[in-house]
Computed example of a mutant assay.
Amino acid sequence: MDGTGFAELVEPHRRELLLHCYRMLGSLSDAEDVLQETLVAAWKGLPEFRGRSSLRSWLYRIATNRCLNARRDAGRRVPAAPTPPFEPPAPTRRDAVTWLQPWPDALLEQVPDIAPGPEARYAMKEAVELAFIAALQRLPPRQAAVLILRDVLGYSSAEVAGMLAMTPTVVKGVLQRARSAAGDGRAEPGDEGLAQRFAEAFTAGDIDAVVALLADDAWLTMPPAPHEYRGPAAIGAFLRASDVWRGPRRMLLVPARVNTQPAYACYLAGPGEPVARPAGLMVVTVRGDRIGALTRFHDNAALARLGLLEAAGVTSAG
């Protein structure tokens, strides 16, 4: 088979494999790199593929093991934590999951609508929400792989054992530990109108109104910064410090969607400036009648993937 034939063979699986690598790694940039490694390995190993499993399962085995290697790699690139431009209040905790990146919903629409196996426990939407992706990164690599293969993709214990060179008994034990550590991971459906109310209050600098929308156990996280804030009081203290630093500059928010959640591309405009400059991405997690989490990505690469990096057409607030 030549390169063209191979490309046509694997193309139907490319997007879902990219999503699989993203779940494993939490980073879309890393997922793209590992996907390329996977396809190169599949091309080289194609003569040995005997059809003992489906092509899809064979590709998932290669991709999963490549992701495991990447997660175990001591040299895995981890972005440097940004230095805040102001003195932030003391964080509630510091988190080791700092390489988290958002997944644009436009990419999710390109993933084939393939029904997961009967063992699946998570729906597509649940299995790409930021909280679930972050929870996967906190698991040991092998536990994360088993949880995804079993509970997201629905492969049987026997199939997972074959992919990961384990026994079905070991798979069941690893899965039990992974489920216990990850928790349910399912977000309560909520009114996404809250996200718009947040955006209006945030751009107006009305921190009290923002705080009033938060759940008692809400989190503010800012990957790749490790500091996190829990609860309305802690989140409010950070937002007020940020608002003081922003001064007379105005924040503009443009709606977007990532990880099946409402998000906003952020732009800053100084006094009298006709154009606002890109300033990262805010993701709003709604639970019931409250906002359960705010995730602020300061890296403008997220905006580039959403086609929102350029500030053209976004004039200073007026």
Rank of each mutant, 00 (worst) to 15 (best):
M1F: 13
D2P: 12
D2Y: 11
G3Y: 14
G3S: 15
G3P: 03
T4I: 09
G5Y: 05
G5C: 01
F6A: 11
A7V: 11
E8K: 09
E8Q: 11
L9H: 10
V10D: 14
V10E: 01
E11N: 13
E11K: 13
H13F: 13
H13T: 06
R14W: 02
R14G: 01
R14N: 04
R14I: 00
E16N: 09
L17V: 14
L17T: 13
L17G: 09
L18G: 04
L18C: 04
L19S: 11
L19F: 01
C21R: 04
C21V: 01
C21P: 01
Y22R: 10
R23E: 00
R23T: 00
L25D: 00
S27V: 05
S27K: 00
L28W: 07
D30V: 01
A31K: 15
A31I: 04
E32T: 07
D33V: 13
D33N: 10
D33A: 12
L35K: 12
L35S: 10
L35C: 05
Q36P: 01
Q36Y: 10
Q36A: 06
E37L: 07
E37V: 00
V40Q: 05
A41V: 09
K44F: 07
L46Y: 14
L46Q: 08
E48L: 03
E48H: 08
G51L: 03
R52H: 11
S53E: 15
S53F: 13
S53T: 15
S54V: 13
S54N: 14
L55A: 13
R56C: 06
S57A: 13
W58I: 05
W58R: 09
L59N: 06
L59W: 07
L59K: 03
R61Y: 01
R61D: 01
T64R: 13
R66D: 03
R66F: 07
C67S: 14
C67D: 07
C67W: 02
C67V: 06
C67R: 09
L68W: 03
N69F: 06
N69K: 14
R71F: 03
R71I: 04
R72T: 14
R72V: 13
R72L: 15
D73G: 05
A74M: 03
R76P: 04
P79I: 05
A81V: 12
P82Q: 10
T83K: 10
T83E: 08
P85I: 00
F86M: 11
E87T: 14
E87V: 08
P88R: 03
A90M: 08
A90Q: 15
A90C: 08
P91H: 07
T92L: 04
R93E: 10
R93K: 12
R93W: 08
R94K: 10
R94D: 09
D95W: 05
D95I: 13
A96H: 12
V97E: 01
T98E: 08
W99F: 02
W99V: 01
L100V: 07
L100P: 02
L100A: 00
Q101V: 08
Q101L: 02
P102S: 04
P102L: 07
P102R: 06
W103F: 15
P104T: 05
P104D: 08
P104I: 00
P104Y: 08
A106E: 07
L107A: 12
L107R: 15
L107Q: 15
